[in-house]
């Protein structure tokens, strides 16, 4: 059993016991249909919103606040979205956040050297994707576990970012037009939110409505069976890693434009939040598999909770506390629901 299997199992608490019990759980999920299992996140989100809107009508319950929340989470949401493809295919990409940070530095440094923004952006996307090619090669050809391969890559990218910046903050040298890409607002919400919407839509279509999505889940579900249906498993796994890395490049460009400066440490803090969102997302909408809508719900559920607490005057560490508790709680709830259904099935 690979690490990814274990984690996927942990995240969704599906039993791998052949048939019986797992079967019961799955049957129940289906039978419940629109029940608590699939949409617990949405309900919880609504409760959180109503709770804080009543408590803090002046600050939380304003249109402005919802616009702020929407814009605030765009980067985290996009990093999480980038992770969906590899997680679906049963590989880990721990390098995604470091890659974002690396690409922030690359796109800024290139422009400081006088490169025009469009070319710098293209080069950065290419650099991001190249990281994925290396990840794919190491995982598929050298057969290094993806967890280890991308952890190593993460460290390499951190070193690369340090090298590019010389450990210093990079400021200036980018055009206002470039900054506008990340800082302008439309209807009161900053641009990255709209990029995130477009990215979500594209990924949603790919994952749910194209053969590629089928391939990803086939490989992630049972690699041996996928191989024996003639799927080019290696290509799918490498492709997922290349896509996540290319998306990391894109997020890096957007983040660079919205920060307006670059330093080597801006990327990595996104990793935990993004993975939490994807895992929490696997308990929603399409239980048991990484999915776009579930991930977005997870990102915004967590952000709404944190925002409410911040506006109530809670200190900043509540952020991490809330994220951690919510992740464990939600996944545990999903597991409990599945277990209870199993028990009632067995009794029946």
């Amino acid at each position: 059993m690979t690490i990814s299997d274990k984690t996927a199992e942990a995240a969704t608490s599906r039993s791998t016991a052949p048939n019986g019990s797992a079967a019961g759980a799955r049957a129940s999920r289906r039978r419940i249909g629109f029940g608590f299992n699939k949409f617990s996140g949405l309900y919880l989100w609504a409760i959180v919103i109503v709770f804080f809107a009543i408590r803090l009508p002046q600050t939380f319950g304003t249109t402005q606040n919802f616009k702020i929340m929407a814009g605030d989470q765009a980067i985290t949401a996009m990093v999480a979205l980038a992770l969906i493809l590899p997680v679906a295919a049963g590989v880990f990409d721990l390098s995604v956040a470091a890659n974002v940070g690396f690409c922030v530095c690359v796109v800024t440094r290139l422009q400081m050297h006088g490169m025009s923004a469009p070319i710098a952006i293209l080069m950065t996307l290419f650099a991001g994707a190249l990281v994925g090619v290396v990840n794919g090669f190491v995982v598929v050809r050298l057969e290094v576990d993806s967890f280890i391969a991308t952890l190593g890559m993460s460290s390499i990218l951190a070193a690369g970012a340090y090298w590019i910046t010389g450990g210093q903050q990079l400021v200036g040298g980018v055009s206002q037009k470039f900054l506008n890409l990340g800082q302008n607002t439309l209807w009161g919400i900053s641009y990255p939110f709209y990029y995130m919407l477009v990215l979500s839509l594209v990924l949603y279509i790919i994952v749910e409505h194209t053969p590629v999505g089928r391939y990803l889940f086939a490989v992630g579900g049972n690699m041996q069976a996928a191989r024996l249906t003639g799927l080019r498993v290696d290509r799918v796994r490498a492709g997922a890693l290349i896509c996540s890395s290319a998306l990391a490049g894109l997020v890096g460009v957007i983040l660079a434009a919205s920060l307006g400066s670059a330093s080597q440490d801006v990327g990595p803090p996104y990793l935990l939040a993004a993975f939490s969102a994807v895992f929490l997302g696997t308990t929603q909408i399409r239980p048991g598999r990484a999915n776009v809508v579930g991930t977005l719900i997870a990102v915004y559920l967590l952000a709404t909770g944190v925002k409410g607490l911040q506006l109530s005057g809670a200190p900043v560490w509540v952020n991490g506390l809330f994220n951690g508790v919510a992740l464990i709680f939600a996944v545990a709830l999903a597991a409990r629901g599945a277990r209870r259904q199993r028990a009632s099935n067995a009794a029946a």
Binding site: T59, Q64, N65, D72, D265, P269, G313, V316, W317, N319
Partner: peptide, 22 residues
């Protein structure tokens, strides 16, 4: 508004915005 090192650039912006909203 006390921050943690890992908040810089990630959570600090929203934390400051929240304080200003409050």
């Amino acid at each position: 508004l006390d921050q943690q090192l890992s908040d810089v650039g990630t959570n600090t912006p929203s934390s400051v915005v929240s304080a200003l909203q409050r």
